[in-house]
Write a protein that binds this DNA or RNA. Sequence first.
DNA 1: AGGGCGCACTTGTTCGAACAAGTAACCGGC
DNA 2: GCCGGTTACTTGTTCGAACAAGTGCGCCCT
Lengths: 250, 250
Amino acid sequence: MAARHEEIAEELRRAIDDGEYAVGALLPAETGLAGRYGVSRGTVRQAVAALTAEGLIGSRQGARRVVLASRRSQSFEELRSFAQWARAMGRRASGLVVARERRRATAEDVARLQLRDDGEVLHVLRVRGLDGERVLVERTVYADWIAPAVERVEDDCESVTARLYQETGLVFAYGKHLIDAVSAGARDAELLGVRRTSPLLRVRRVTTTAAGRPVEWSDDRYRPDAVNFSVHNSIGSNPLARQAGPGFGG
Amino acid sequence: MAARHEEIAEELRRAIDDGEYAVGALLPAETGLAGRYGVSRGTVRQAVAALTAEGLIGSRQGARRVVLASRRSQSFEELRSFAQWARAMGRRASGLVVARERRRATAEDVARLQLRDDGEVLHVLRVRGLDGERVLVERTVYADWIAPAVERVEDDCESVTARLYQETGLVFAYGKHLIDAVSAGARDAELLGVRRTSPLLRVRRVTTTAAGRPVEWSDDRYRPDAVNFSVHNSIGSNPLARQAGPGFGG
DNA sequence: AGGGCGCACTTGTTCGAACAAGTAACCGGC
DNA sequence: GCCGGTTACTTGTTCGAACAAGTGCGCCCT
């Protein structure tokens, strides 16, 4: 958080959270904020652009900016890491590796992880809990070049993300998430302690480094009574997309 | 699309789509693009910032930008409007109003739609189809000030969004989406032609105008074999957030 | 051959300025 | 009292410039 525009964005977020600017209220004009913080108008615009992307404030040319919401979305790190997310909410996360094995990479693995040849990948099946209650089954496939570091992580490690950063300096930078719903089935029902026909919220995701190199892909199934997802969007930036399912030949 | 930086962003998107810049390839430097398009570096930065937010390209200080994906996410309008989305995919959307009635606004309606008093709201239950197959049950609550325009829309109208824009000039600008999974239940099962225990993908959303005024909120339930959702995010911008479900006292 | 250093290149940050375009409030005429 | 135009304010767009900070490659030395 060295950049001045990030500092200003954070101050504005706090001001909105603290109620200094209530929902529906008007933010000061750009020139006013520039004067208050002693920066140019361009720097202020970078700050408010961040809040706009987060869905906190709305803006129209000619009119003052409006506060739309008060709570900001989670940081990327909190979304990536189940443990960090739980800690930020004041809950305790647990995790246990049920199975772990190296397998020959399938065509799907090669495509999703952009592997050169079809060498080996590392499959890990984890069950994760929130305050002792099991809420998530996680099936992750790691690329070969990160697999050794993952294998050194102990089975009941709370935060794999933090462990990998400590060991290798690896930073997750981009993610793509595909969301749908499935029935639990026999295996997941047993692991989560729910009925076989219970609906689960499935998130299939691919995570890459800042250089665009895929690190892992995962099939996560959440108990929908315990966890759900929210997305903000606007005319200016729309990261959420609807897709025709495979059953429809999309 | 008057702004030069938007034109440049669109040209870059097309170039990536057409394979001029393949996935994994390096984009030209900012100064190079600035020269090619005859604009300043700042304008190029606005263009590439848009693509970065869309998850198409990645960027790190000091290194050239990398192409991460080739297909861009849908526009806000396509997400908002089921009909426009279907048309963009070359499919035919249908829609039928099953029930429509004015009701006294509940406390939830007042909160979500930021109504002043607890007057009347308009409830509409629609079933929507893709190429004749029923895929979505939509329960929408409209604010009182837009209800008259909605009531003038015919029951089998394909695109309510387009109709409301024609009639009132109303533009939807911001959306918040809460995603989880539920079992169909007797009513939805009958409407969609699936089994009572089938999992459905539920999206509860609130849409507002550019001025931050809520227009509608809706409970949409999709057949997960027909439709699912994808989200892009990064360290820089993260619109996706995980939330503890109500069953956990979140 | 291998490792370390330095340099050229690239992105990130910030400033100041100017004009275009849209909004909202005020004011005057009917 | 209501309607419409004028006007001050605000956001959007774009330029040019300068410096900071990080990357990656080649070169040199060992």
